[in-house]
Write a protein that binds this DNA or RNA. Structure first.
Length: 898
RNA sequence: GGGCGGUUAGCUCAGUUGGUUUAGAGCGUCUCGUUUACACCGAGAGGGUCGUGGGUUCGAAUCCUACACCGCCCACCA
């Protein structure tokens, strides 16, 4: 069989993928004979297109899942997508705008049809992309946060929280995005610094004596003055005692402001006088409540000013109004000064527009009661973070948790299951009168019997459905809900419940730090509240993907590397390999496209190692029908010993989520032990046993590597099946994780062999130091009688690897180039670059001199002898004698040769 | 303002409880090699007073402390 010398992932990967999908190898159902292992995917947005962050996130999950699957766990990776309320609505609105229409033009119902058809058309793009990078999800279970069953769960949770008084509706100050025209939660308004000005405004004051005075207030948002209803000072601030009985007039609006005293005012900041705009600032809102001030909402939904401001400003955008006001106030000499100022302003996390603080009627979840248990489980390490430092971040946020605004004024999402009685509901009252929360539209008001009911127009925050993800995806609360189709796909109630019992809590959640509060914290709260269980025991928080200058990859900055481009060029395996290789636990990943060469080169190395083994087997017509590892000579024990170590290390590292270290360990073994040594050693002596052994090592390596690079390992696995008549599973993931294989060998002979390998290195060094070029060497080896037969056995390949003609075993040497505790070696050489060699020797001699000095220093130190553990002292002593021996040898060599 | 992380070779980073490392790897650089698995390769070389100053210790890249610079998160200073 002809095998190309270049591995071609583009040809291989799609075929392998098809086999996986057809074979449904990744389907996991309850199997009491196996331990369960489960992960729920962080559901990508249906608007999403695979980016490097997804690639990293899902590769990590896939490695864990594939590893456990091979370890004979029942490994379930639950896939799905998120409806992503605002994001999706924005996308579909933009598409509509291209036709010159707005969503208002076509109406809510029609717009929703657009949303669904968009979702049907593009919503699974990212799922297909995940498949191409090898994600081994149980695709048959694919969930969507707006599946009917899932939606019913969301609604049910709302009703339950409402019943328990953990949800309330009220007029509060919230973050408002004037572009998306909806309320946002605190988390959705990202604080960023914005260059701006701090304006010092002069407000006229009339004192009792009718003096004309001014007070100066500082503000970054002058337009809000149109909604001012008070002036606040600190009661202890003596400077403003005179103000307490005076009247402050709000310029332009020309009305009197009340004067309040509050400790919250910092006399040190600005002028010590604060203008109070209760309807447009969170602090002022509190002041307003406390001091019973008037709340004047001055803005429309789109942040233009409304009819509550003087006519000139009505309908003007907030920023334009700011400019106008500054100009007008300047004219009136009412601006004392302005200073450059960086203000932290909230930005909409979906469209980056600066949000406004605005009072509006919204639904909220009381978070403090939910947080209590979620704090405990993390404190008690029932839920653990990797890296552990996130524990503190999590707890800090939980201790200071604020109520969660969950209503959104958009059309894409779960409609709030609440109806208001037109007759008896009073939005300004705190009781629930006239609010009917129900699964289905009620006929009559349960309070007054009126049939004039209207449903709340809003939908729920997307995260209000995502926080149920780990258990809602299993069909919780198992009441056979959903459409027939849902039920067919999600199986019947009993199976669902059993599966939940079996797989839940899930094991590991893999996510980026950005959504720790949005999602992770809330899932823990929701799961504890509704299922009484933690949702997962381990949370892996990986880093952010950045470009090679350390800047976060983002479409708008144009610095993204498209994972699919990499897949196209180098293959999904190369992408996965390099991402894992670079992602040290929790630290950010700096990418440039050449970083993927490491992965590509490695794949090619594997490919060629396999190609070499197969070609040898074919050429020599060796038949391999069972993998019976035999020790023909020491090299077989040596490589097996290293494989055993690699298996142990690799497994441990994966279990501790040190995937980068795990892949490096496997990489190092395969390339530098197996290829560089074992395959080189056996080249000339490719016996049946060696063939057998090399296939065994290859197969074991492939298994170790499979979680990281599934395609190529599957491909070569199938080639092994073809080339050797072995009874192997259909898929590598069903063939089991490699186990250590015991070897019966005295440790002594392994040590001797290691010294032979070491001798090759040393002679290669000497070749360089002596400047021998391609000169063929003759070696003389002096060793004890019983080691002579060992040398006789390994002479052949040894010569080849050091480029020597002969090795003679002798009883005495005229000079010694290399020596260890088993043997000494002399090189018989023709011409050499003696100056170069002398220089190299000097360098080594100096090095040993300083090392000896260092160890002597330690050994002369009485405190060291007294305090250091015995073994450390012993080690230091043997180091010293070893160094001295080597030094003597080098000095002799120099005398003889140079 | 509070909290967290980082600073080790030209670049990207390992270095787990202080002594198994004479501070390592990958990439890049330089030298040699086309001996048919692989030039997407092989062999070798050069390159670091481990951010700075103190301290603990027989012994510090590793622990403590102060400082500097970089990055992130949280926070209502108008």
């Amino acid at each position: 069989m002809e095998i190309s010398s270049r591995y071609n992932p583009k040809e291989t990967e799609p075929k392998i993928l098809q086999r996986w999908l057809k074979g449904s190898v990744y389907h996991a159902k309850k199997d009491p004979s196996k331990e369960p292992f489960s992960i729920v995917i962080p559901p990508p947005n249906i608007t999403g297109i695979l980016h490097m962050g997804h690639a990293l996130n899902n590769t990590i999950q896939d490695v864990l899942i594939r590893y456990r699957r091979m370890q004979n766990y029942q490994a379930l990776w639950m896939p799905g997508t998120d409806h992503a309320g605002i994001a999706t609505q924005n996308v579909v609105e933009r598409a509509l705008a291209k036709e010159g229409k707005t969503k208002e033009d076509i109406g809510r119902e029609e717009f929703q049809k657009h949303l669904w058809s968009w979702r049907d058309k593009y919503g699974s793009t990212i799922i297909d992309q995940l498949k191409t990078i090898g994600a081994s999800c149980d695709w048959g279970r694919l969930r969507f946060t707006m599946d009917q069953a899932y939606s019913q769960t969301v609604g049910g949770v709302f009703l339950e929280l409402f019943k328990q008084d953990l949800i309330y509706r009220g007029n509060y100050i919230i973050n408002w995005c004037p572009r998306c025209k909806t309320a946002l939660s605190d988390e959705e308004a990202a604080h960023k610094e914005v260059d701006g000005w701090l304006y010092y405004l002069r407000y006229p004051v009339k004192t009792k004596k009718n003096e004309k005075k001014f007070i100066i207030v500082a503000t970054t948002r002058p337009e809000t003055m149109l909604g001012d209803t008070a002036i606040a000072i600190n009661p202890k601030d003596k400077r403003y005692d005179w103000l307490k009985n005076a009247k402050v007039i709000l310029p332009i609006v020309d009305k009197e402001l009340s004067i309040i005293q509050d400790e919250a005012v910092d006399p040190e900041f600005g002028t010590g006088v604060v203008k109070v705009t209760p309807a447009h600032d969170p602090v002022d809102f509190q002041l307003g409540k406390k001091h019973n001030l008037e709340f004047i909402n001055i803005m429309n939904e789109d942040a233009t000013l409304n009819k509550n401001v003087p006519e000139t400003f009505q309908g003007i955008d907030r920023f334009e109004a700011r400019a106008m006001l500054v100009e007008l106030l300047t004219k009136k000499k009412l601006i004392e000064k302005k200073e450059p100022y960086n203000l932290g302003a909230g930005h909409c996390y979906r469209c980056n527009t600066i949000v406004e603080s605005r009072i509006s009627l919204q639904w909220f979840v009381k978070m403090k009661p939910l947080a209590q248990e979620a704090i405990k489980v993390v404190q008690q390490d029932k839920v653990k973070f990797y890296p552990n430092r996130w524990k503190k971040v999590y707890l800090n946020w939980m201790f200071n948790i604020q109520d969660w605004c969950i209503s959104r004024q958009i059309w894409w999402g779960h409609r709030i299951p609440v109806w208001y009685c037109q007759n008896c509901y009073n939005p300004n009252s705190n009781d629930k009168k006239g609010i009917i929360a129900a699964k289905k539209a009620p006929k009559k008001c349960s309070d007054c019997g009126s049939d004039k009911l209207t449903q709340d127009k809003d939908v729920l925050d997307t995260w209000f459905s995502s926080w149920l993800w780990p258990f809602a995806t299993f069909g919780w609360p198992f009441d056979g809900r959903g459409t027939k189709d849902d039920r067919r796909r999600t199986k019947n109630k009993k199976i669902q419940e059993e599966e939940f019992e079996y797989f839940y809590p899930t094991n590991t959640l893999v996510t980026a730090s950005e959504i720790l509060f949005f999602w992770v914290a809330r899932m823990i709260m929701a799961s504890l509240k509704f299922t009484g269980k933690i949702p997962f025991s381990d949370v892996i928080i990986h880093g952010t993907v950045r470009d090679d200058e350390g800047i976060k990859m983002s479409k708008s900055l144009g610095n993204v590397i498209d994972p699919l481009e990499i897949t196209d060029k180098y293959g999904a395996d190369a992408l996965r390999f390099s991402l894992i290789f670079l992602a040290a636990s929790g630290s950010d990943v700096y990418l440039s496209s050449d970083k993927f060469l490491t992965g590509r080169n490695f794949l090619n190395k594997i490919w060629n190692a396999a190609r070499f083994i197969f070609s040898q087997i074919q050429n020599k017509k060796i038949k391999i029908d069972k993998l019976d590892y035999k020790l023909e000579d020491e090299s077989d024990a040596w490589i097996l010993n290293q494989l055993n170590k690699t298996i142990i290390d690799c497994s441990g590292l994966i279990e501790n989520y040190r995937l980068d270290e795990a892949i490096k360990t496997a990489y190092d073994f395969f390339w530098h032990s197996f290829c560089d040594w074992y395959l080189e050693i056996i080249k000339d002596n490719f016996s049946k046993t060696k063939a057998n052994n090399s296939v065994f090592i290859l197969l074991s390596s492939l298994k170790l590597l499979h979680p990281f690079i599934p395609f190529i390992s599957e491909k070569i696995f199938s080639l092994i099946k073809q080339n050797c008549s072995l009874d192997l599973a259909d898929f590598i993931s069903e063939s089991g994780w490699p186990l250590e294989k015991k070897i019966n060998l005295e440790p002594q002979s392994l040590a001797v062999f290691t010294k032979i390998v070491d001798s090759v290195d040393k002679i290669r060094d000497l070749r360089g130091d002596l400047g021998l070029g391609q000169q063929k060497l003759s070696l003389q080896v002096k060793t004890e009688a019983k080691l002579k037969e060992v040398w006789a056995r390994h002479k052949g390949w040894f010569c080849r690897l050091v480029n020597a003609e002969t090795i003679t075993l002798v009883d005495s040497l005229e000079r010694v180039f290399y020596q260890n505790k088993y043997w000494a070696i002399n090189l018989k050489i023709g011409s050499a670059d003696l100056a170069k060699f002398s220089h190299a020797l000097d360098k080594k001699i100096n090095n040993f001199n300083s090392l000896i000095k260092k160890t002597e220093g330690k050994l002369k130190n009485k405190k060291f002898i007294k305090n250091a553990p015995k073994n450390v002292v012993e080690k230091e002593k043997s180091k010293k004698s070893d160094f001295s021996h080597q030094l003597t040898r080098l000095k002799n060599l120099k005398e003889i040769i140079v």
